[in-house]
Design a protein around this nucleic acid. Sequence first.
DNA 1: TTGTATGCGTTATCAA
DNA 2: TTGATAACGCATACAA
Lengths: 361, 361
Amino acid sequence: MRRPPERRVVLADVARLAGTSEATASRALKHDPRIGEATRAAVHAAAAKLGYVPNAAARSLRARRTHILGLLLDDLADPVHGKVAAGFEEAAAGQGYAVFMMTGLHDPEREQRALTAFVEHRADGIVVASCVIDPAEVHARVPADRVVFVQPDYPGLANGADPPARGVLRTDDRAGVAATVQHLVERGYRRLAYVGPGSGASDTLRRSAATTALKRVSRGPMRFLDAGVDGWRDASPVARMLAADPPDAVLCYDDKLALALLDALRSTSLEVPGDMALAGFDGIPAAHQSWPRLTTVDVPSVEVGRRAVEMLMAAVRDGRMPVSEVLPVRLVIGDSTPPRAARINSHGTPEAVAARRVIKP
Amino acid sequence: MRRPPERRVVLADVARLAGTSEATASRALKHDPRIGEATRAAVHAAAAKLGYVPNAAARSLRARRTHILGLLLDDLADPVHGKVAAGFEEAAAGQGYAVFMMTGLHDPEREQRALTAFVEHRADGIVVASCVIDPAEVHARVPADRVVFVQPDYPGLANGADPPARGVLRTDDRAGVAATVQHLVERGYRRLAYVGPGSGASDTLRRSAATTALKRVSRGPMRFLDAGVDGWRDASPVARMLAADPPDAVLCYDDKLALALLDALRSTSLEVPGDMALAGFDGIPAAHQSWPRLTTVDVPSVEVGRRAVEMLMAAVRDGRMPVSEVLPVRLVIGDSTPPRAARINSHGTPEAVAARRVIKP
DNA sequence: TTGTATGCGTTATCAA
DNA sequence: TTGATAACGCATACAA
């Protein structure tokens, strides 16, 4: 097991071995075209021989550019945010940027501390994803052309505050909810219910979208149920409420909640989709593999992460943050929202439902 | 297009406003006990007034300590790795460390590039999680007392190479597989099969563990099926193979694969658990919410991330990496592996199903 | 094409 | 208790 030499190898060592000045060595290493081929080769050889590794801190200090991006997201363990992080990291790495990742966990103080870390490290750009912090607070600490907000979730948003005109990247949740509502209505479901955490700007937005969409098709009213912020861990309270007075179809805030509800409903007499249709949101892998497969809205989470990096890069290049964007989403119809008529025809005992299942090819 | 020069507030500005020297200001800001209360307050007031943010690059350069940890993991979008990342970030942030995260995506070159980034940034410690790179290669570039390997997955491991004696953090997969095999046997299942990607040191290890465990209870042999590295995306080929000649129970490499298989089996005549038991590994959320709920092995992924940070901190403190550790895992019995005698399916006994299957075209 | 000199912003060493 | 000064390692304007 070989260990690197004790004394750190610095540029001066490389220059000395190559028989050049530090400046020449520095230029040669970054392929400055003005450097002669022979010297360039000599410097590279020396660097390789000594195992030279440039010091990013020194480079950043001098160059006033860190090649670091900061990503503040809510929770790395969440499948949606994990995908955003994956797309972000991939795009950043592709551009030669290192990524600082910190989680906010819905805690404003944590989010502030993360921002502090980013600013101290002089990140070239920052992305604030699914966080509760107000963009105004961020802009007070970071130049507006260095930060992109992804799916902002701050309280002001629910209260009608205007988001920044630039540097906001969202997915079209409103359209996603509308498509789901329309789908349910088209399939013959009348009494719809929405189940969400009951707090958070995203939840508020989706509720509003649901109401609007339902009004458009002259149905209604929508019934709203709160599962609590931890509803996705255990949805049995909501399951019991639904079992006591079942709607035709339930629209969930997200797939995590929908799957928890699907699971909890198995302890009740309510069957999905036999007795009640169920739709989710986000399109996480588990939603596409559940039984029944969930009707949900695929959100391009990886693409969101990538696009955020691109916006940041464009801002660095042009000195100005690009205008905000809204990425499209796509309704994916699963087996949890069959045509209501068909459902009624084959409605019966769990055994009958199971029998129907095995007839599949 | 050039950005207007940013006039940054530096320590000298704070010192000037506070009427002290830079040295005193620096000490006051980090609560050096030798600084008088009045001076300390003045400096802090000045810093707050000016909105001073220390420059981490300068600090690191001088202090030769970056307060940066590097985490190289396989894939941020994976639920297991995401949890490791979450635990890691939380623990690191708690200790005042920022975290560089990079993904290897099973690509040795990517892993190398990530290491380069970490070393250039002089991370105080590095964690290499679920990567294919050989520890020896890492140690050639990073001092051994600054690296922790989590669940190493390099080819040499499968070929019997000795992992480093220190700085390796694993979960007890062998025990997890053994517990699963024993559970299946106790429940009356005889003909067992293992389905895995067919490559990778982890897969090899689990296969070996399965064989060993089966030998211990004098059953056997274990049947092995390859799902391919992308088997968790679409397991229908394996599902068809199983349907053609069903074992009593299937042990999957991980939950992702098990859930994909569960899903794919729904397009065959094989029912889980009616015709065949199924067990997974990892204990991801979806496994606990699937139908039927999966019997699986809960792996303390978040704890793995946390513990890795603790090992790194201990190494920094003591100048020596702590000895390797193996975290315990826990078999969680779901509904996918009921006692064999109690099995039911929708067409009758498994035997009758088998008889019918034989006369099929 | 290459070298010289300086400064990036901070902390540590020494001196007072 | 505080201050002056020298690094830390590199990149760049300016010279040659």
